[in-house]
Design a protein around this nucleic acid. Structure first.
Lengths: 268, 268
DNA sequence: CAAGCTGTTGCAAAATATGCAACGGCCATT
DNA sequence: AATGGCCGTTGCATATTTTGCAACAGCTTG
């Protein structure tokens, strides 16, 4: 809609691949060097782009800070967090919270396992959408038309032999998940890791987030993990109740507009 | 330099404070609603902004993904990571890696403590710059003029009674840190948490990153933590050697330009 | 039922971004 | 040591793009 802004924003994913110099940016944008320079300068002023010692550009610090602030202001996350911690204290495994947005599912919170074996995942990282328990829960709540549309646009990488192979299988799985109200991922992403998840619902009954407990085979078998299902579901329902209490169905924040409260702090 | 882009980017920090509707955005930008609409649309197309169910806008998912990709492509981080893990395995405490950029210090990697007591901090989060050991290390390497300039622009919040109180004290501390080649934070940020850190240097001897080990009093006393200093310094030097080996002094990446390799995966 | 609010579109005026060409610094080459 | 080439940078005139306006549409509120 706005050409200038469009071009400027196209620089960001480009730099996410790695540092680039002015010429490379201009080429890939298909614009004159001077134009690219001015766009980069504007991005630089806003801290979204940083110029390193060799004069090349890469993504800047403010980007992290923004993403950070954004995720901390998500009210579902705020409400869910203590529940996730409590769940982790009970079972000891890794707990995740995820949301669906714009054809992507991404983690917005995580409580690390107490066991020495940990799994790789990170807040903000897009989820393996075709296999993750949280992804199934979130997609299962979409209308059938939307599900179909999404399912057909996806790739179905075979992470393991138990990964969801194709769109029909995925749609069947989503239907099942939608009916039973919970989901699993049994070695569909990494051979040795299993997950059990449950949905968090708003006041209108729609799924606004999904949570899951994950653990590797070496700690508990899939069957043992499944015994946690009632606990997981109860936790998800507790979050849903808390969440429905605050804002009626939507994603309204707590009302802090205009100033940025620093509620928690970090340490060296 | 580019007004349109400038305005569009100004929307991001605004939304970081919390969701806002069209009118609010237009007002705070000082532009007509239709203008704000078109800017928001462009941001939306790029996924930087998301429209929630109540029609209000907030920061979008792609922002997280971008920040994520960016941090994973930082070569210092990539090189340092195995060393940090190894250090964590030896001592069991939380290990941090941080860089300085554009008047901010921020964490770019973290290995969690193996002890049940953990500390709050998150990758991408700006560091408490006046007290953190890593911040002292990074700022100590700036020229005296820069140090002075930075120190005078800072706030000096008294997190605890042992926080750095003002600019002169901070500058003295930086001088000391620069000379001795290591730094501490003994309860300056949170009363019960101590840190020891050491600098990572590039081939030209300049400090490119800083690492630290942090532990709460309840696990080890400050004196015990200080016995780890040689180990921390050796680790930092090992990282420096690895880092200097790759690119001569700069922040060159590994050469993956044009395609985005998916080297690691997440799980539900 | 009407009034007010919010978001949305088409259009003409005007401000803005664009590409060009020329300059300057830097490194590598001859 | 000198030169050639490369990359980033600037001023300027052209014209493309954005902007604000005014009117419309959809929704909730009085």
């Amino acid at each position: 809609m706005s050409q200038t802004v469009d071009r400027a924003l196209s620089i960001l994913p480009l730099l996410a691949e790695g540092p680039a110099d002015l010429g490379q940016v201009a080429d890939r944008l298909g614009v004159h060097k001077s134009t690219a320079l001015r766009l980069l300068r504007t991005l630089h002023e806003h801290g979204l782009v940083h110029r390193q010692s060799d004069q090349r550009y890469r993504l800047g610090a403010r980007l992290f800070a923004l993403a950070q602030e954004a995720v901390e202001n998500l009210d579902v996350r705020e409400i869910a967090h203590p529940h996730l911690v409590a769940l982790n204290e009970k079972c000891g495994h890794t707990v995740h919270l995820a949301v669906y947005e714009e054809h992507e599912v991404l983690y917005i919170d995580k409580v690390e396992s107490r066991y020495p074996v940990r799994m790789y995942s990170r807040i903000g990282k897009p989820v393996a959408i075709t296999v993750a328990a949280v992804a199934k829960l979130l997609l299962a709540d979409l209308s059938e038309a939307e599900r179909r549309a999404v399912a057909e646009k996806l790739d179905y990488p075979m992470y393991t032999s138990r990964s969801t192979p194709n769109a029909p299988a995925f749609l069947r799985e989503l239907e099942k998940v939608g009916e039973q109200g919970w989901a699993t991922d049994l070695g569909g992403h990494e051979e040795s890791i299993n997950c059990v998840g449950a949905p968090v619902r708003g006041a209108d009954g729609r799924v606004v987030a999904a949570m899951s407990v994950s653990a590797p085979n070496v700690v508990v078998t899939a069957e043992e993990l499944l015994t946690l299902l009632p606990l997981v579901r109860r936790t998800a329902e507790a979050i849903s109740r808390d969440y429905s209490g605050t804002g009626p169905g939507n994603t309204g924040n707590t009302g802090n507009t205009g100033n940025t409260p620093q509620k928690e702090a970090s340490s060296s």
